[in-house]
Structure formats: structure tokens, C-alpha cells
Design a protein around this nucleic acid. Sequence first.
DNA 1: TTGTTTCACGAAATAAATTCGAGGGATTGG
DNA 2: CCAATCCCTCGAATTTATTTCGTGAAACAA
Lengths: 154, 154
Amino acid sequence: MPLDRIDCDLLSLLQKDARLSNKELAAAVGLAPSSCLARVQRLRSEGVLRGAHAEVDPQALGVGLQALIAVQLRQHSRAQVKAFWKHALGLPEVLSVFHVAGTHDFQVHVAVRDAHHLRDLALDAFTTRPEVAHIQTSLIFEWAKGQVMPNYRA
Amino acid sequence: MPLDRIDCDLLSLLQKDARLSNKELAAAVGLAPSSCLARVQRLRSEGVLRGAHAEVDPQALGVGLQALIAVQLRQHSRAQVKAFWKHALGLPEVLSVFHVAGTHDFQVHVAVRDAHHLRDLALDAFTTRPEVAHIQTSLIFEWAKGQVMPNYRA
DNA sequence: TTGTTTCACGAAATAAATTCGAGGGATTGG
DNA sequence: CCAATCCCTCGAATTTATTTCGTGAAACAA
């Protein structure tokens, strides 16, 4: 199941705007709506297309500050890694979690109300955890996402 | 323009699954389809809902490796920051860019084919840049996104 | 009270998604 | 070389959803 050029175009278009109608999509890739639909359904059933998520304005939700929190664990046992992973993903303030190799073990992207909230979060949800040895918080000035996942199969 | 409980429910549902039909959405929040549509349209026109993006399987696109590249600039002039920002966002390998305050100036999330590709990217697109003083690359073992942007207005 | 605003509803009109049968190439096997 | 098969496409018909619009009820202000 290789991806041909039309599949790639579909993936690219839907990553930029998942609300494109099947009709618009079909026109954009030069296919009849029924053929286009069949392709998109195939991509979904194969797991290449995993879903779609709406993007909301953080400020409208009262998010005034975002930060990256670098976390170092005390030990690198599988149990501790898993425990922290689950804990972090369960916090409402957490937007995403990276488990990384390097000087730190995790980078956690958080969205908070303000500096006060960030301090409380760091102290209550990170520093006090038994598996956490050390954290280092970096304020985010600006944050942007690339348009699409690169495609190395093209 | 305050967000009431129904607005928040809509935002939450659409962040989890932007492909929900208006009909399903209406049923989920207990509104008639026409009323639900009016709310979603209002949220869009107000800029609270910014759009929707499909999620694709990185492996299906030949992405075998992801990394976080921490970047330190030589100087912290506005010109250098802006230059690097634009450069990074223009690279196809870049998924997102964080401009941060702290020991580093940027964290760049990249998706590459393999270790070779990562080395080439680091050397050709980061280290050789005039405004870059130093980089530190961290392999990503695992990466997960939280479900929704937290809502501090509720 | 009275006027005004806001919001939800449902029916009708419009438009879209989805199903299905059939035809055109290309590849495979005889 | 021919025939059979497969894969993908198309377009019309059907089903389903989106969108528009007029109405009316509740909340609020004067």
C-alpha cells in the first residue's frame, strides 16, 4: 500500500484544513467526489489518517502563558518513566509531553493562566513528585507549528 | 463575548474530533442542529475556533525519527531571532518551533527519516547558520499530545 | 408594564456525502 | 497475441446533512 501523488496531496490538504468538504477535496486533486471519498476512507481505515482536531485560540480560554518544563528523573527505570508519563498526560495544563534522550528525560509543554499558576504547577505537580530529581522551566515567547508532516515516501 | 457551558463543550468536543457532524455535535450538547450551527459559526467568526487539522501517522510517511533541537543564538538581537524563526519554519522537517526564555533560545521539533538525515539536518540547516552559536539535539523516544487546551474561563 | 434583545426551535430549501453499477486501462497468464 | 483479471475511475441516484429563515419564548431594561 504505497501512497501515490494523489494520496499525498490529500494528506497535505487535510493537514492544512481538515474542514475541506469532500467535494472541494476532489476538485483540488482532480478526482470525482466518489473516487476521492474512497481514497480518504481507505487512508482512514489503514490508519494513515488518524483523525482531526480543532485548533482554538489559547487567549480566548484564559491561557496567558505557556512554558516548556524540562524534567530530570532520579532514576531511569521503566517504572519511573511510565509513572511520570502517565502523571503528566493526566494534568489539564499539559499540552504535550516529549520523552527524550539527553541531559533531560522529558520536555513538557504546558499552558497556564499566569506566572502564579505556573509556579504552583511546577511546585505541586512536578517538583513534589518522588520520581522527579530536577526541573527547569522555560517561558515560551512564541510558538508556531509547521504546516504538514514531511513526506519521505513521495 | 463570554463562553458559556455549551460553547466550552463544543470547543472540547471539536478539539477531540473535528470531524463530528453538526448533527452529532448538536445532540452531544443538547441543542437543535440549527442552534448548534449558529454557535459554531459564531465561535469561528470570533476567532476562538481557528480551524482544524488532520493528524497523520508519521511512520506511514517515512518518518522514522523525531528530535528536539535546542538552539542558542550568538546574539539576542531582534533581527537574529526573527531570521532564525523564519528559517526554521521554512524547513520541511520542522514540526514546530518554540521561542523560549532560558538557557536556550529555541526548541525545534523536527521529523526526519533516520539518524543520517538528522545529522545532515543539524549540520546543514542549523550549525552552519551565522546566527546560531550552539545546538543540542535530543532524540525523542515517545511523544503524546494532551486532549484539549485547558479552559480557565469556565 | 412595555419595548428590546437574545436565543432556541423546526420546517423547507439547498447542498453534500454515500452507494452502486459499469466502463476503461494496465498487468498477468495462457 | 489474445483473453481474463484487477484496479481504479466515473456519474447518476439515493440518502443524509447543512443552511436559511420565520416564529416564539425567556431575560432584561426602562
